[in-house]
Design a protein around this nucleic acid. Sequence first.
DNA 1: GTTCTACTTGTACTATCGTTCAAACAACTT
DNA 2: AAGTTGTTTGAACGATAGTACAAGTAGAAC
Lengths: 196, 196
Amino acid sequence: MDDEERELIDGRRARGTKRRAEIIDATLAVVTRDGAAGVTHRTVATQAGITTSLSTYYFATLDDLLVAALSSVADAYTARIRQIIDGPGDKLRGLAELIAESGGPGRERALAERELSTLAARRPALAPVARQWRENVAELAATLTAAPEAVAALVATSDGLCTAILIDNVPADSDYVHRVLCQALGAHRDAAATAR
Amino acid sequence: MDDEERELIDGRRARGTKRRAEIIDATLAVVTRDGAAGVTHRTVATQAGITTSLSTYYFATLDDLLVAALSSVADAYTARIRQIIDGPGDKLRGLAELIAESGGPGRERALAERELSTLAARRPALAPVARQWRENVAELAATLTAAPEAVAALVATSDGLCTAILIDNVPADSDYVHRVLCQALGAHRDAAATAR
DNA sequence: GTTCTACTTGTACTATCGTTCAAACAACTT
DNA sequence: AAGTTGTTTGAACGATAGTACAAGTAGAAC
């Protein structure tokens, strides 16, 4: 245990980063299992295998914990989509596969994200975090079309498809998702293969 | 205790329908103000100006209350969109105006609907109710196009636009919404004015 | 009148919540 | 060894939650 994580930019030591990450993971597990309403210092602590007071030691208030958890999922999602944007492959297909994950192994995370982003509607401090996903999708869309309406349509469709997949609770077909995205982009006739 | 509930179409009297409606309204007011997490028998009762026990008299459990409230908003939304489908006007424009309301006077209701439909992701009994909005939009879309992808794109876009409007918390321009819907429909080039 | 039934209230029990706090623990400095 | 600093614990306080329940009302049926 020397300079454990540091993940900070300044020369100083990173504080309880590892514990914080554990607690955030436990929080997301609770959100996945019982919903955001089930998140309490006690349930989170039990899930993490620590004491209640330790949870409050790292996150003084429940709100801090929820904000941190939402930011965490948002960051993970952001990393995924940036990978698609900067990567070499077909961007629209990459997005389709990412969305389709909401119905399979990524359902838990997608569910947590929706739950927590709904929370954001009432806490102004969380709105920027919740908006990040949309902005990243918009950036991706901007590489595929110049029409602002097409960008907006792709962003909205991506979000709506995620919602539909979550509520219908069925494994999603990434080919189908891709086709719907093409439709929204207006690429159904010509630009279906132009991605990148 | 015979045919108590039914309060429906048959000639019999409806039981505590009025009180129930009052309590549901109060519930939605609480959801609007404090979110679904703020819904308790006590807060609802205070909002409705009744005693706590009366709230439990009509809705034995908190879950019953939330289910009833969600069903209520879903019904109201359903009525609105059926009006558009069966009405004489431009259906796509009607839908655009309905969506744009989420940013203005209808924000409260849209917020409540999102909050409560998120709740549905974890309670299977609520999923059909949450799905109804999508199915109605799909029905509307089916009158405008035959392509299944276009229908799916319009439904997803409608949902995503609502979300965006709610999170961005800005009054929405129904013309803009209409243009994005046209884009998703694939009607940007030709069919922009074909609605109906 | 009495009776019955739907409705309404006040009170209370039990559980759990967020949060606090003093004390113990661990590792590293001096 | 003593001290310092960051971490962890167990116990507790006050507040609020869901729910239950016996008692009280009002009005229609008898």
